[in-house]
Write a protein that binds this DNA or RNA. Structure first.
Length: 420
RNA sequence: GCCGGCUUAGCUCAGGGGUAGAGCAGCGGUUUUGUAAACCGUUGGUCGGGGGUUCAAUUCCCUCAGCCGGCACCA
């Protein structure tokens, strides 16, 4: 069979607009920005995986620090589970039956281990290690969980679709009555996070029961209903995707639109009434009986890798100050100001600002051009005048205005902007 | 994974059956500079891996890998 693809436009202007869009998309392609801004690279020996360079990892950590703070204030306990576990665990969890084609395996001393494709079984093990009262619920675990999935080679795409990724994953063990409040609380939190990162075009979907599933129809009826009720309660529109739920339960999906109009699923809130039972999770209820908790799977940014890719494209690499890997470059004009530049840089670092100095023997024009291309948000220019008067002259990316102010004031101002 | 294309210096890219070039970057100098490229000199490549054809392959053929575009997939 032969397929022929084509695009057609009604007018020449529409064609031009389309070509312009493709050009813009290429300029802000996160793979290209990753090279230009020295954030990360990928190489043949590790397809679908990422080597994070110092600047890329600084960005990662800025995202991670913010999300970690969200965990903290919303009652999550951060945990950490092993990256590999005996395959028997994955047989119990159901992953072996459903997804072994997409899992990586390794072996040692005649035992086969699976590299974890999801974090939930690990979190259930942590839950199971103690005895829990209904009074303790909901129990919320969070992890920047490293996962590996053997995605089809043709699906790989920069940071957007990788084989090794890290989820801002969380699992909530709760009673059925607690599901709706947890879902609405999660929603508010997720929307706040998206707004903080600059995303306002978020669409919600509820993925409903698939053909291949576990659990009774009554369970599915209740769990789908509670998701609808939660979204109705918070007053947001959604669309429904019949047949697209996970095999263990329905889910809400949060889709963010990127700068070139592609929509990426980032956040998710899933109800799971299968895995806790399969893996033996239980709590003690009011009557001293044992009950199986409901488990909620949730993520806000989803994959850290993908989310960073979306951030880069959304901002064309010109990240807001609080996320920029290098927030300030201190650039002396003459070598007589080198010592003072070092002092300014140290003061900024002391205040928690990611600052570097550029003492190279280059003209200030050259430095400004280069650091502007590197999308550094603030260039602090110091010449003889600044060194004598103990001031800094700040130049913001994207403007030609400059502002000279006393060193302490400049440091305080940048410090205030350096974190959300 | 499927169909098609691509793979040449750190980056962006020329070139082509007789063992390779540019710009930028890098390095060595000169220059001490006030808001988007100072000047001079110069290093650098097993032309993605393996095999084949040929007197000779980076160039042609086969194969593998990765990447790119699309499709399928995405717990």
């Amino acid at each position: 069979m032969q397929r022929i693809y084509g695009l057609a436009f009604a007018t020449e202007d529409e064609l031009k607009a389309h070509l312009h869009m493709l050009e813009e998309a290429e300029k802000r392609d996160h793979r290209r920005l990753g090279r230009q801004l020295d954030l990360f690279h990928q190489q043949e020996e590790a397809p679908g995986m990422v080597f994070w360079h110092p600047r890329g990892w600084a960005l990662w950590q800025a995202v991670e620090r913010y999300v970690r703070e969200v965990y903290r204030v919303s009652g999550y306990h951060e945990v950490r589970a092993p990256l590999i576990a005996d395959v028997s665990l994955w047989k119990k969890s159901g992953h072996w039956d459903n997804f072994r084609e997409n899992m990586f395996f390794t072996e040692s001393e005649k035992r086969t281990y699976a590299v974890k494709p999801m974090n939930c079984p690990g979190h259930v093990q942590i839950f199971n290690a103690g005895l829990h009262s209904y009074r303790d619920l909901p129990i919320r675990y969070a992890e920047f969980g490293s996962c590996h999935r053997n995605e089809p080679s043709g699906a790989l795409h920069g940071l957007m679709r990788v084989r090794a990724f890290t989820q801002d994953d969380g699992h909530i063990f709760c009673t059925e009555d607690q599901v709706q409040p947890e879902v609405t609380a999660f929603h508010a939190q997720a929307m706040d996070v998206y707004a903080a990162f600059g995303f306002t075009d978020v669409t919600l979907k509820i993925a409903l029961r698939p053909d291949k599933r576990v659990g009774s129809d009554a369970d599915w009826d209740r769990s789908e209903a509670v998701l609808r009720a939660a979204l109705k309660q918070v007053g947001v529109p959604w669309t429904e995707l019949p047949g697209e739920g996970a095999f263990y339960g329905p889910k809400i999906e949060y889709h963010l639109k990127d700068s070139i109009g592609r929509s990426w699923q980032c956040g998710t809130m899933q109800i799971d009434f299968s895995m806790p039972g399969r893996l033996g999770a239980e709590y003690v209820d009011e009557t001293s009986g044992r009950k199986v908790p409901v488990m909620l799977h949730r993520a806000i940014v989803g994959s850290m890798e993908r989310f960073i890719g979306i951030l880069l494209e959304n901002y064309s690499g010109a990240l807001p100050f609080w996320l920029a890997p290098v927030q300030v470059v201190v650039a002396p004009i003459v070598s007589d100001a080198d010592a003072y530049a070092g002092e300014v840089c140290a003061a900024l670092r002391g205040a928690g600002v990611r600052a570097e100095s550029d003492l190279r023997n280059e003209k200030i024009n050259y430095k400004i051009r280069e650091h502007s291309h590197q999308k550094i948000p603030v260039i602090a220019v110091v010449g003889r005048k600044e060194a004598e008067q103990r001031t800094v002259t700040l130049r913001r990316l994207g403007t030609e205005q400059q502002e000279t102010l006393p060193l302490a004031e400049g440091v305080a101002r940048l410090e205030a902007q350096s974190r959300l």
